[in-house]
Design a protein around this nucleic acid. Structure first.
Lengths: 170, 170
DNA sequence: AGAAGATATTTTAGGCTTAAAATAATTTCT
DNA sequence: AGAAATTATTTTAAGCCTAAAATATCTTCT
């Protein structure tokens, strides 16, 4: 009886998109997430530099190749690293010149190049990855296993929510 | 009786720092946090550019000044933005030349300069901040109020943990 | 086959970022 | 006061990053 006359239910998404207003809580959440990430990222960056004289982007790129030993094209790399194509070109160039990466034309597509770690690259990455893993473990040592799992799940939700919200725009 | 002979209890922190080993869970957590942040950050960057033709660093700097209307020195700005001093110099330079910022020597310290928003800067920032707040609200619309609070709390813990872990090194 | 559209990469111009060195002013110590 | 150490900022060199345009190749459609 009152179901017919009541205003349509408004979910959080509709509220957020259509009702500009007070969203300070979300703003604070975003700023905290950004601060937290930047803090950790700057720490990793500094330690990679001090310990291995390598930059974070180069380490990240090598990590992607380590996850896929059969190699990746530049386009796949730029997608997985969430950076532009031209950016990847330059970083690969640098790592190839250092003998850490192997770059060869794709067999199936003459436009594409496949990049993979050289033996030297695998060796260097192994060292860095082990140290990196321990730094990260120390970074999160203030959280219990259960809290880590909760954080993981909530970030997963946030990621999906953000993807949905962005997809509707781009 | 067995308290005396049992090995000393080892907490998570000690484990992480002293017992290099398997910390894949923490690594996955960090990668997810980084992905999530980068995803949102790239979205904000693109929309600031498309809608207001402004970069994220400039928006961030103006946001800091908006929070402190009495003005900030370049050093305070660099600390709050977690970027280097030289970086702030260049961004301030740009915003001053656009008439959005006012820069004047500090009265108490002739080495320092105090920066604040001009009337034009305040006007421009208000517009951007309102849109930004709504984008962020939409970004997190997939989370309930309770989930947002949990995420906020867990990120707070992670931040403290990371700060502690980093402080011990630097 | 040939044209039109899509895709992979590179190039270019501009901006952000850092670390380290240099400069100028302040504070501290004697 | 004067020297030494510290602090605020700028400069410099190198690297990361993007968007947009250019090039080369592939795919699709007729």
């Amino acid at each position: 009886m009152d179901g017919l006359l009541a205003p349509a239910p408004i979910d959080r998404e509709t509220t957020a998109t259509l009702r500009p207003g007070d969203h300070k809580a979300e703003l604070r959440l975003w700023l905290r997430m950004l601060t937290c990430t930047t803090l950790i990222e700057n720490g990793v960056r500094r330690r990679l530099r001090d310990t291995f004289d390598v930059t974070l982007p180069r380490f990240d790129l090598m990590a992607q190749l380590h996850k896929t030993p059969t190699g990746l094209t530049l386009g796949e790399l730029s997608q997985r690293m969430m950076v532009s194509n031209g950016n990847v070109t330059a970083i690969v160039e640098k790592l190839v010149s250092q003998g850490l990466l192997d770059r060869k034309p794709s067999l199936r597509d003459r436009r594409a190049q496949v990049v993979s770690l050289t033996a030297a690259g695998r060796g260097a990455f192994s060292q860095m990855a082990a140290a990196h893993e321990n730094w990260i473990a120390a970074t999160f040592s203030g959280l219990s296993r259960e809290e880590e799992e909760q954080l993981m799940a909530l970030l997963g939700k946030a990621k999906m929510s953000a993807r949905k919200s962005l997809g509707e725009v781009s």
